[in-house]
Amino acid sequence: MPRLAELLGKSDADAARLFAVFRQDTRNDPHVHVGDVHATDAEMALVLAKEQFTRRDPCVNLWVVPYSTIAATPYDDAALFEHVTDKSYRFGGSYREQQRITRPRRK
């Protein structure tokens, strides 16, 4: 499972100064990736992220993470997530519907 920086062809130096920004709109929302900022360090990244990503949107909390520390699955084998064998017994129709209703509101 390669590091995201490698997948995107970024050098470690570049990836260390690029921060993914996650915004939590309200107390009962999860943190959502809303974009990234270039910054020398995490503290400045948070300061800069605040204006670029919360000028108009509600926010109660921000996370920033350097790209150099993100590990990711590659897109190329999306089959990774296809439920090859029939796992419908896991879903149980009602659960999926119920799950969709209760899933927190997201942009």
């Binding site: 995201l4 997948l7 995107l8 990711a72 590659p74 897109y75 190329d76």
Partner: peptide
Amino acid sequence: GERIEAGEW
């Protein structure tokens, strides 16, 4: 109609 992601071939 699907989309292509960054980092994908």
